[in-house]
């Protein structure tokens, strides 16, 4: 086992090195041009125009910029110049707000749907129609109703997180083994006690699967939502840097979004393992 993981690490490192090398080669300038050009003029138009250097920053440029971001992530020099730490914190706060609100709605409602065939059938058409709607399609409606762009972004996160949690909770609750429910019945457990002591732990792994999918989707959607509403957040940061034509910062933001998304997923994965059980 350990030799496999060692070998996998080596292959990963080789792939990374190759990737960085190819990247560096592709964006390197040809070096041709400056001889014929007035040096003063060449400095003015920059390396891209004078030496044929790509506007795409190389891995070393990106690394250096990343280092600058990470060494001072929380500076605040006005609305259009905040550290990436602050931007990520805004995004995370919105995601957590919308996500927790979604959990508060989806898990109890999922219990209701899973335990009551009547409610399951009655609510099914609503879910079928609402589920496939892109969360961003709700944005104008949210902006009009809530009249606050930051709260609208939170609402969009809410609406996109709710479905996986709702459907997984309903499924997990509906498929709790009949034997366990029969045990609960013969022990004359109250409905509340059956829900908390039997159904909740039995369905917990399935519920957590839904919550894990939801947090992933929420983190995908927040970037797009913040591009629309603007102001703060990592999504806004990406768009703002695009308007600044700083491809380097855009790449930095992309990397950070990926890392934060991975951490969120792993935290949920850990929680999932904590509630899972072997039969």
């Amino acid at each position: 086992m350990s030799s496999l993981s060692v070998r996998a690490t080596i292959v990963s490192a080789l792939l990374l090195a190759t990737l960085l090398l190819v990247w560096q080669i592709l964006v390197q300038g040809t070096g041709a041009g400056p001889q014929q050009m007035d040096p003063e003029y060449a400095r003015l138009v920059g390396a891209t125009a004078s030496q044929g250097k790509s506007a795409m920053p190389g891995p070393l440029d990106v690394g250096a910029q990343l280092w600058r971001h990470l060494s001072d992530p929380f500076y605040d020099k006005g609305p259009n110049d905040k550290g990436v730490g602050i931007q990520l914190a805004y995004s995370l706060a919105r995601v957590l707000g919308g996500y927790l609100a979604a959990a508060l709605v989806a898990i109890p409602l999922g219990f209701l749907i899973g335990m009551s065939p009547l409610m399951s059938r009655a609510l099914d058409p609503f879910i079928q129609v609402l589920k496939p709607i892109s969360p961003l399609a709700w944005m104008p409606l949210a902006l009009y109703t809530i009249k606050d762009s930051a709260a609208s972004a939170v609402f969009v996160i809410f609406i996109c997180s709710v479905w996986p949690m709702l459907l997984n909770t309903a499924f997990g609750v509906a498929t709790v083994r009949n034997d366990w429910l029969n045990v609960a019945k013969t022990l004359e457990l109250s409905r509340v006690r059956t829900a908390l002591r039997v159904i909740l732990p039995a369905a917990a792994p399935t519920i957590l699967t839904g919550m894990r999918i939801s947090i992933g989707i929420a983190w995908l959607v927040i970037v797009a939502a913040e591009m629309l509403v603007g102001g703060t957040g990592i999504g806004y940061f990406v768009w703002n840097e695009w308007n600044n034509l700083s491809i380097n910062n855009v790449i930095n933001a992309i990397l950070l979004i990926g890392v934060v998304g991975m951490i969120l997923d792993q935290l949920m994965g850990r929680l999932q393992r904590a509630v899972s059980y072997a039969e």
Binding site: D179, W180, V198, P201, A202, V275, Y277, A278, E279
Partner: peptide, 8 residues
Amino acid sequence: GHALMPWM
């Protein structure tokens, strides 16, 4: 089947 709750 024993019908024990596997998480306890």
